[in-house]
Simulated scan of single mutants.
Amino acid sequence: MTSWKLSLPCTRAEAEAIDASDDIAEGMVLMTTELHEDDREHWRLDAYLEAEPDAATIAAILALVPSAAGAAPEIEALPEEDWVTLSQQGLEPIAEGRFVVHTSAHPVDLPAGGRAFLIEAGQAFGTGHHATTSGCLAMLDALPGPFARIIDIGTGTGLLAFAARYLWPEAAVIATDIDPRAIVVTAENATLNAIEGVELIVADGALDDRITDRAPYDLLIANILAGPLVSMAPEIAAIAAPGATIVLAGLLETQRGDVVAAFAGCGCALDAVDRRGDWSILRLTAGAVRYVPTAPIDPKGRDGWALDL
């Protein structure tokens, strides 16, 4: 059966919105690709289709990526190929500690004493295939625990919250994201993976009353981006219990100093770094006394932040 692929340039912001949403038509899979590490402006959208795209389909796909206005879509036939498999090629299962993350195109056997998570390839942020997410899985797997209150800020697909739930089943676990579509995806993934007991909250950072009312947390996870981590350091530190463990990711090694300095200013100390290529995953410990911001935090005054990588 002949399948088709339509490609367009896009930005990271557009890619995040696409990957957190449902496919726009039956018989279509949308995939986005980072062309250059930590480059917000140069991404690519690939739409895999069962039939040659007509004018209406092309217009619907173009509507997803306004930055591509005026660009001619690249359309190619993919003869005698399984278009679903094509959309997921290269996304073989990822193993980190006790965890295996896979797509339905690559089923796996349950690891002995471990846990497999099914996260589909179309959900590119938080599938485990990015170094930051896989590094967070490894870091969580190595933590001694136990933890009583856990929060995953910018949860994306929910993967890290699910891992925490598996490791510490008695803990109260909250997963938050600024994008309501990401929370829908997380809820779907929780059902797909038989995950129960993770509270889902749509929230801008960590200032929402539903988050602060449940503070303090003794394990905090934030796999977002360096800029938002720096600007959000006071609000993250403010909901951390004294001596809490904080796992941060989504930052390049060249950005590590800025992130560490921002959290040090809030009483948090760096304990460990897992460097994976250009990316770094950080483990910090909150101060012995719970941090109180020196000034009110205005969410409008800090950078916007992105979905889980």
Rank of each mutant, 00 (worst) to 15 (best):
A116G: 15
A51I: 08
R12G: 12
D218W: 03
P180H: 11
G158C: 09
V230F: 07
A20F: 00
D303G: 13
E26R: 12
N189E: 01
L140W: 12
A272Y: 12
R256D: 08
A264C: 04
E80V: 14
A148S: 15
V273A: 10
I178H: 15
A164H: 02
I239T: 00
D278E: 15
N189Y: 09
S21M: 00
H42G: 10
I221S: 03
L282S: 09
L143Y: 02
A194K: 06
L248W: 02
A148L: 05
G158V: 09
A112V: 13
V101I: 09
D22Q: 10
A71F: 13
A142P: 01
P93I: 05
E16C: 07
Q255C: 06
S280G: 12
L45Q: 06
M139D: 06
P53G: 08
V260A: 04
S67W: 01
A171D: 04
A241V: 07
I221A: 07
V84M: 14
F162S: 00
A237K: 10
G156N: 01
A269L: 12
R149Q: 13
L159F: 06
S7Y: 04
I94D: 00
I18S: 02
A306D: 03
V173D: 01
D258T: 11
E26F: 08
A95P: 03
E16I: 14
L270F: 14
A171G: 06
G135H: 12
A272I: 11
A203D: 04
E235M: 15
D82A: 05
A116K: 01
D141W: 02
A60S: 15
S280I: 07
F125S: 01
A15E: 02
V100H: 08
A194H: 14
V198H: 03
M31Y: 00
P144M: 09
P234V: 09
A138F: 09
D303S: 14
P66S: 06
I183Y: 00
L118R: 13
E235F: 11
M1T: 13
R12A: 13
